[in-house]
Design a protein around this nucleic acid. Structure first.
Lengths: 224, 224
DNA sequence: ATCGGACACATTGTCAACAATCCTGGCGAC
DNA sequence: GTCGCCAGGATTGTTGACAATGTGTCCGAT
């Protein structure tokens, strides 16, 4: 998509920019010039401007007075902090999900689990990554915790880069697959404490792996 | 403060509105008319507008197309959800704080604890409430978790009403004081697990008390 | 060759006016 | 009396132009 395909959209500018950042079209530290975005998405500069304000309060972009906005680069330390928050919140959601689980939910969970096994066995990294997302999303949905889910979603947006690198890390599936299965088992057993513990162990291992996959060349040569 | 005292402030419109909501000057479901706020705070309507967008993405304000903004009313169920998130996150921060605590921090914690005891003994509800805020803030500061702290702060803003009612609940200090002391002791012992557990127990009791202090008369009969 | 200053350009910040939309109240038809 | 309908007013949404600020460049003096 090279140009102007959106003619009469409501207020999707913020979503469009968010998606562009998520998809890597806008890379970290890239400048976001209002006039350019305005033309790129066929929106008025005012709309782009308010979109940038909103994205700034979501932590996706940085804005400095009279100097414009750019895609915020999250350091490794920040990625760790963010994932620690996710650990606490997804743990909470796992516990809630265990309490509210229906038999049908359990079946769907096990389906995801089997699909994961198959994806890992066949070396389908992208498929496994997609299933990973589906599992975590499903847990959030089961938990029925709107507040927590919204926060987790927002934090995930800030971490797309690190998450992606993690998914492509060789040997990672062998570690995370059994953790995922343990989460599923605990949920199906409706054991809230065990589900929370399993989820926390899983995300703790993500945190421990983050430094290994970090490719922050730290080319900002002053702050690190 | 009744009127226009801010003449040449940078971009404090959003902070001013936030403060007004926190202080109860703007009550739940109250309409926030751009022109009125514009005059009230001596800012242009454009600034007010972007401020409202930002506050909406913070969850303090609700905005509907062509119908303006109003102060968001958080239901009891939402207040419970919010406080459950706080339980998870402040638990995390308590654990981190225990690991990083210095001797001097410990002394300051115990000072707060003693001041709390005195406030409760003398029936100083407002003083105790203020100390409560100071204790929780101090734990966040000790934890050094910027991401978690920012989220907690934001959630607190949404819950001001319920928090206030809780603080004024008779008999509440008798319950929360020993919990606060346990948190302080666990922190001073540098026992991360115990600190996290104590913090979670404390906030769990807050959650359990919320329904009792709830005064959602649902008097929104369309609100003005 | 390097430094300082002035000029030009690019970009953001602000404002006022205009258009679109929604709510209110009154009026007539049934 | 109730329902539908149609101005009138209030409020939000949008646009474009202009001001303010920052950035980069070129030139001359040392």
């Amino acid at each position: 998509m090279t140009g102007l395909e959106s003619s009469t959209d409501a207020v999707p500018v913020v979503d469009a920019i968010r998606a562009a950042i998520a998809d890597g079209e806008f890379v970290a530290n890239q400048r976001l010039v209002e006039a350019d975005l305005s033309e790129r998405f066929g929106a008025s500069r005012t709309n782009v401007r308010t979109a940038l304000v909103q994205l700034a309060s979501e932590g996706l972009v940085e804005r400095v007075q009279n100097r414009g906005a750019r895609v915020r680069a999250v350091s490794l330390a920040e990625a760790v902090e963010i994932t620690e928050v996710r650990m606490a919140l997804e743990g909470l959601c796992a516990a809630k999900a265990a309490e509210r689980l229906t038999d049908d939910d359990g079946r769907r969970l096990r389906e995801i689990g089997e699909a994961m096994r198959a994806a890992v066995a066949s070396g389908d990294l992208l498929g496994y990554s997609e299933l990973n997302r589906r599992l975590h999303d499903f847990v959030l949905q089961l938990a029925g915790q709107g507040t927590a889910s919204a926060i987790i979603e927002r934090l995930r947006g800030q971490n797309v880069r690190h998450q992606f690198q993690l998914a492509m890390h060789p040997g990672r599936p062998a570690v995370s697959l059994p953790q995922h299965m343990e989460i599923i088992e605990a949920l199906c057993a409706r054991d809230a404490d065990r589900a929370e513990a399993a989820m926390r162990r899983h995300i703790r291992s993500v945190i421990d792996t983050l430094p290994e996959v970090d490719t922050t060349r730290t080319r900002r040569f002053d702050a690190l």
